[in-house]
Design a binder for these strands. Structure first.
Lengths: 195, 195
DNA sequence: GATCCTTTACGAGACTGATTAGTCTCGCTA
DNA sequence: TAGCGAGACTAATCAGTCTCGTAAAGGATC
């Protein structure tokens, strides 16, 4: 995390403050959950006055939405442009996706979104569009390159499901911490089904 | 791993009251969530004085634990004993499991457990053992009857994952309400992979 | 540049109003 | 003599507002 040496806050709201607030929100909400984490805690964590938060964000809900958006944003799928065979690129894509999504923070984010899914369905949609949806689209494209474009979407769904598998369920439910090799094995087993 | 919830063992507390409280808690917490649902609401829903709840349960957390335990318990998988071919019985098992697990109450229970997975991992383990784990075991047994017993556990995992598929993710994330046919389609598509 | 002046973001924290877990009291009943 | 229903009561939490004093940016004039 780089620290801007000489921020020059002008007339407008300091973007550095916004970033600090989001970082504080990430720390607090990932530690205590969206519902339990308080705005006072976010302000303290960010080293910021509470009013400053409300100058940058309309409400707690708006802050949560912005945080989810920010945490989902980096999750952009960069399709490997290498001239590898499509099957190989699909494998790499799945590996990268699983590695990203099994990060402790990613798991906590997923848990927090699932917890609030009923009250804030927008969060779920945001998360779905930003992360899981994109991988499915990318894999479907790769699949369509070498096979039938008609079946590609369904097979992409199935591949992602199998790549995550029970290991991800255990991670989400907090019943175990699967080793990375497990996911690699799941991915290879999934790909083998279409060979 | 029974969770002790009775503050004063030995007292004569009406078991019917305990059941009524749990039923009220189920109604309230499944309607409003564990965090939002209040003890006053549970008391009103159960037709019970608030103090009676605290005579039976040490705290709100204890009540939640007891409720989760109670809701997980009945989720027993009854393997179809009919003399149908194994493939047919696997299909029925998957259909029954999916139908059970996509119930609004089941989804809310799952959400609540995921939300508290970090703070109360025991609940996650309880849920996993009571529901998802059992289906996998049952399907693996059926698969082993007609195919290789060595690959059965892995294939059972994969079948369950594919049966739930993206539709279950959307349900959990609150982004949509998939029609039952979707799950049937996913199950048939999954089974077709091994035909 | 240098000196003033106005405006605005900011940290700190007091404050409000609403909610709620948990306790206490009382009168009823089996 | 219990458990019980009803509900008042306490204490804590928390979203959101308001008010301070401060620092600094942008502009104006010299």
């Amino acid at each position: 995390m780089t620290i801007s040496t000489s921020p020059r806050p002008g007339r407008v709201l300091d973007p550095a403050k916004r970033a600090a607030i989001l970082e504080g929100a990430r720390a607090v909400f990932m530690r205590e959950g969206f519902a339990q984490g308080s705005m006072d805690a976010v302000a303290a964590e960010a080293g910021v006055g509470k009013q400053t938060i409300y100058r940058h964000f309309r409400s707690k809900e708006a802050l949560v939405e912005a945080l989810v958006e920010a945490m989902c944003a980096p999750e952009v799928v960069r399709p490997p442009t290498k001239s590898l065979p499509a099957a190989q690129r699909i494998r790499e894509l799945l590996l990268a996706f699983v590695a990203d999504v099994t990060t402790p923070d990613s798991v906590r984010l997923y848990r927090a979104i699932v917890a609030e899914a009923e009250r804030m369905p927008g969060l779920g949609r945001l998360f779905w569009q930003a992360g899981p949806r994109q991988v499915r689209v990318a894999i479907a494209q790769l699949w369509a390159e070498e096979h039938d474009a008609g079946t590609a979407p369904v097979i992409a769904e199935q591949l992602v499901q199998l790549a995550l598998g029970d290991a991800y369920q255990e991670l989400v439910l907090g019943t175990g911490l699967p080793r990375p090799e497990v996911f690699e094995r799941q991915i290879d087993a999934a790909l083998a089904l279409w060979e």
